[in-house]
């Protein structure tokens, strides 16, 4: 029996009417562990933002199965490191889904915070001011916060950046533990070797889904080649995407904005 956790329906996400994710369809199975890979600008982070709801879709929708709570670790955190807070204050934010704005933190909660820190190898760091943490330590602190959020759907955007090899191992172990707990996890990763070794499923993005499924299949050389041909830049004057014009080749009769609106719409990235 498989249940879906997330459903993308004709999802288009982007900025200033330029799509970064273009007409994505598909589902994420409950309890799956998916790596999201692709070149810079291929829409990985944008997809994450769309799922968590920070970015509203330009078209289509993301449907979360009812009752699914998401935890999100962004690539570029808007965290203010100069804010006078201790590690424990930062991690405690992860209690928000449980305690909300007004609920008191119990001694149980405090114990949970300590445990979460222990789990990422930062036991005893509670009282450290956050501006004294190294980049990797901060990343692990944020992992501890995700841990504390106890979410069903976990979205990690390039969590292994600026993290040393040993820590990557620790964090992978943590992700696998979550996977074992039937949580649904999506991780944006750049290191394909890491993906091959640790992630059962992969979504290869280049504005559209180039391939999506079992990792070994998805990361086949021909798929990677197609993804690499992906053209990163926005085209300022890219033609408008017609409501039903993306899925199939269509006739050239659209003269209302006629010039250079031609056959870029076959499957795969635009190779312009």
């Amino acid at each position: 029996m498989t249940q879906t956790c997330l459903t993308f329906r004709d999802l288009t996400l982007g900025y200033n009417s330029h799509p970064a994710i273009h007409h994505l369809d598909g589902t994420i199975r409950k309890g799956s562990l998916t790596a999201v890979v692709g070149a810079n600008g291929s829409g990985k982070s944008t997809l994450m933002k769309g799922i968590v709801g920070v970015l509203k879709p330009m078209a289509g929708e993301v449907v979360r199965a009812p009752g699914v709570r998401a935890a999100y670790l962004p690539q570029q955190s808007e965290l203010d490191r100069s804010f006078p807070a201790r590690v424990v204050d930062l991690v405690s934010l992860g209690l928000w889904p449980k305690r909300g704005m007004l609920g008191r933190y119990t001694s149980e909660d405090r114990a949970a915070v300590s445990q979460a820190l222990m789990a990422v190898g930062l036991g005893g760091f509670e009282k450290r001011p956050i501006d004294t943490l190294s980049g990797g330590q901060l990343q692990r602190t944020l992992f501890a916060r995700v841990l504390l959020q106890d979410a069903d759907l976990i979205l990690l955007d390039e969590p292994f950046n600026a993290v040393d090899a040993k820590t990557v191992g620790d964090l992978i172990a943590l992700i696998k533990r979550w996977h074992g707990e039937e949580r649904t996890i999506m991780v944006v990763v750049h290191d394909l070797e890491l993906v091959r070794q640790n992630f059962p499923e992969t979504l290869l993005l280049a504005r559209q889904a180039i391939a999506w499924g079992e990792t070994r299949e998805t990361l086949k050389p021909e798929n990677l080649l197609r993804a690499r041909r992906f053209h990163e830049a926005w085209e300022e004057n890219a033609p408008w995407c017609e409501p039903d014009g993306h899925a199939h080749d269509h006739a050239h009769g659209h003269d209302h904005h006629g010039h250079d609106h031609d056959h870029h719409h076959d499957v795969g990235p635009r190779a312009a």
């Binding site: 968590v52 709801g53 920070v54 998401a70 935890a71 999100y72 962004p74 955190s77 808007e78 965290l79 203010d80 804010f83 807070a85 204050d89 930062l90 934010l93 928000w96 889904p97 909300g100 704005m101 007004l102 916060r145 959020q149």
Partner: peptide
């Protein structure tokens, strides 16, 4: 208080949970 601190400390996080 808690929302104000969260909004200063990590606004994107606050947006993702509330």
């Amino acid at each position: 208080w808690r929302a104000l601190v969260a909004e200063c400390l990590d606004p994107l996080f606050l947006r993702s949970v509330s």
